[in-house]
């Protein structure tokens, strides 16, 4: 889909756009054959959203999170979620300091730019909700003190599909906090061969250099919001949302928040494509990732949806 570029409307290639392309390319060197997924992941972060990666163990979920943290030059913490993990383990805890004679707050691993919440569905709902609340508010309230999380703040959560034993599946309301959900899937034969013959992924990750300043990242996030959205495109977007609401297979349909998320992701995708306006193709590119975890029975139906709803 991205193979084709417009000759006439293409603006002068912006340095930020070029950098983003570079980031995707370099991440692609580590995670082989997953260019599209990497692109989606970066899009999600550029749209100031949290990312949920869902797949079976061992397809590179954690590696992807690692790669993104390194390459974007963000401070990084990893929390392995288990069933006995407590909210304080993530958010931090106030400890009595005998010398000072007062309670002192010890920030948890969440006080960082990028949190990798590994296997988020293994923790109890209580712990999950502590994380998700922090994700939504971008701040942590404890002991009647509200502490802001650093900016930018991203959560990349990974989870195994629900049917695996010993998990607490995230309820719909909490899934909604994630802007996108992507799946990685198996690599194709060629990539897998390269993977098998190549060197250790861990070393490659270690070797990655940050490609983006934090300030640049914030700048991109601002610019993404300015990507032009025409009335014609909004018509299409609304048609799509209306279609999910009338389709009985898809459950209750998309919420207005989901519509907003779709718009933001489309803008970010368009920005990644080095455009300053959103096209229907952008919406189509991000729609399954944005929408699937918000609908009951999605995967097959969203493709059908994209085929059925005409572009006005």
């Amino acid at each position: 889909m991205s193979a084709f570029r417009l000759p006439t409307t293409r603006p002068a290639a912006s340095p930020l756009g070029a950098k983003l392309s570079g980031i995707v390319a370099r991440a692609g060197d580590v995670i082989l054959g997953k260019d599209r997924e990497i692109r989606l992941a970066v899009t999600c972060l550029m749209a100031r959203g949290h990312l949920l990666i869902e797949d079976i163990p061992g397809v590179g979920k954690t590696t992807l999170a690692h790669v993104l943290a390194r390459i974007l030059g963000l401070s990084f913490q990893r929390v392995q979620f288990t069933s006995d993990l407590l909210p304080a383990d993530i958010l931090g805890i106030s400890v009595y300091d005998r010398r000072a004679g007062s309670f002192e707050f010890h920030p948890g691993p969440i006080f960082t730019n990028l949190v990798l919440a590994d296997e988020v569905n293994r923790a109890t709902p209580k712990t999950q909700s502590a994380l998700l609340e922090a994700m939504e508010e971008r701040q942590v309230s404890q002991d009647r003190v509200t502490r802001d999380l650093p900016d930018p703040f991203f959560v990349i959560a990974t989870q195994n599909p629900d049917h695996n034993v010993g998990t607490f599946p995230l309820p719909e309301s909490q899934l909604d906090r994630f802007l996108m959900r992507i799946t990685l899937g198996y690599p194709d034969a060629k990539s897998e061969r390269a993977l098998l013959t190549g060197c250790d992924r861990r070393e490659l990750v270690e070797a990655l250099e940050p490609a983006l300043e934090v300030a640049e990242l914030l700048d991109i996030q601002k610019q993404v919001q300015k990507v032009h959205v025409s009335d014609a495109l909004l018509d299409y977007l609304q048609d799509l949302i209306a279609a999910t609401r009338s389709e009985p297979d898809l459950g209750p349909g998309l919420s207005p928040r989901a519509g907003l998320a779709l718009l933001r992701c489309s803008q970010a995708w368009a920005f990644m494509e080095d455009r300053r306006h959103v096209l229907p193709e952008d919406v189509q590119a991000v729609l399954p990732s944005v929408v699937n975890h918000r609908l009951r029975q999605a995967t097959a139906s969203t493709d059908a949806l994209l085929r059925q709803v005409p572009i006005p």
Binding site: L6, P7, T8, T9, H228, S230, A232, L233, R276, H277, V278, L279, P280
Partner: peptide, 16 residues
Amino acid sequence: VERITGMYVALRYADS
């Protein structure tokens, strides 16, 4: 085709 598509996109979707 590229020229026409470009113009169409500029007219209908871009802020131009």
